[in-house]
């Protein structure tokens, strides 16, 4: 595994609660979510029709795509309803009051290993 490369994205507390924000960096376009006690990041494009997941409604630790209501797990990136598919998840960590994302070390989990495949994206603070 490559070493972690934390890129500061936003100030802690600057994101609206239980909402997502689109983050664009180099060739990456991700959706960063503020769940109150943690931040989670996934690819911004829904596996269905590339809908902007950052604009979805958050439900617990998942998000509903605003285009056709697929439900995506923010921890694993797997579709929970709507159809089958998954998006990459990105490690997030708060460092010195900055929300930082490691764009290089994203994971794409297979649905069968979904629940336990992503230990690194869990704790942020």
């Amino acid at each position: 595994m490559e070493s972690m490369q934390w890129v500061p994205v936003a100030d802690r507390g600057s994101l609206p609660l239980r909402e997502g924000k689109r983050v664009i960096y180099q060739n990456y376009e991700i959706a960063l979510f503020n769940l109150g006690n943690e931040y989670l990041a996934i690819d911004n494009h829904c596996p269905h029709k590339q809908g902007p997941l950052a604009d979805g409604i958050v439900s617990g630790k998942s998000v509903f795509c605003p285009l056709h209501n697929w439900k995506i797990d923010l921890k694993t990136g797997c579709a929970l309803s709507g159809g089958e598919g998954q998006v990459k998840v990105y490690p997030v960590k708060v460092i010195q009051e900055k929300i930082c994302v490691d764009f290089k070390n994203s994971k794409l989990c297979t649905p069968s290993t979904a629940p336990s495949a992503i230990p690194s994206a869990k704790e942020t603070e």
């Binding site: 070493s3 972690m4 490369q5 934390w6 890129v7 500061p8 994205v9 936003a10 600057s14 994101l15 609206p16 924000k21 689109r22 983050v23 664009i24 960096y25 180099q26 960063l32 460092i95 930082c100």
Partner: peptide, 19 residues
């Protein structure tokens, strides 16, 4: 941030390593 996106400069500093 109601209408904003977070667009980072390409050369945004990466805080390398084990912080």
């Amino acid at each position: 941030l109601q209408f904003s996106e977070l667009v980072l400069p390409k050369e945004a500093e990466a805080l390398i390593g084990s912080l």
